[in-house]
């Protein structure tokens, strides 16, 4: 029965790594050692997901579900809008940003800000992050 649907369990296991573990994991490199980051907010956010190929599959499903959000700027705005500090939060170091996003995902679930992608109950924030991955 499960196999009839497009997204497999394995992809969602990877999603767990992409959207759960990645967001919570702390970088082993101290932030003062890192090279100044000149990438766009969309690229930075998408880069937080380690398993890009899986994220893209989920992201594509989300964008089919919410075609009105299928623009980088909308997705970045919507994601940043949910973070404490708004767009300013996107200038945080990677670990801090991951922690903020993980908190937001948890809050999404607590407040049922979820979306059903081919049956999977996914937080809006993680779905939008995957959407970014699909567009970048």
């Amino acid at each position: 029965m499960i196999e009839r649907h497009g997204l497999s369990r394995r992809q969602f296991l990877v999603l767990s790594a992409a959207c759960g573990a990645s967001l919570v994991a702390r970088s082993s490199i101290p932030s003062w050692l890192s090279i100044p980051d000149r990438s766009t907010p969309a690229e930075r956010l998408a880069r937080l997901l380690r398993h890009r190929s899986s994220a893209r599959v989920i992201g594509a499903a989300y964008l089919r579900h919410e075609p009105s959000e299928a623009r980088l700027t909308s997705l970045v705005e919507l994601i940043a809008g949910g973070l404490p500090g708004g767009a300013g939060a996107l200038r945080s170091a990677d670990d801090a940003l991951r922690a903020l996003l993980a908190g937001r995902v948890q809050q999404d679930f607590a407040e049922e800000r979820t979306v059903c992608l081919e049956g999977w109950i996914v937080s809006r924030t993680e779905a939008r992050l995957c959407g970014l991955a699909a567009l970048t």
Binding site: M1, F12, F109, A110, E112, E118, G119
Partner: peptide, 14 residues
């Protein structure tokens, strides 16, 4: 939602 909130995993409704 509760499983996601607790960070235990993800649920699919079939």
């Amino acid at each position: 939602s509760e499983v996601g909130r607790a960070g235990l995993g993800r649920v699919r409704v079939m």
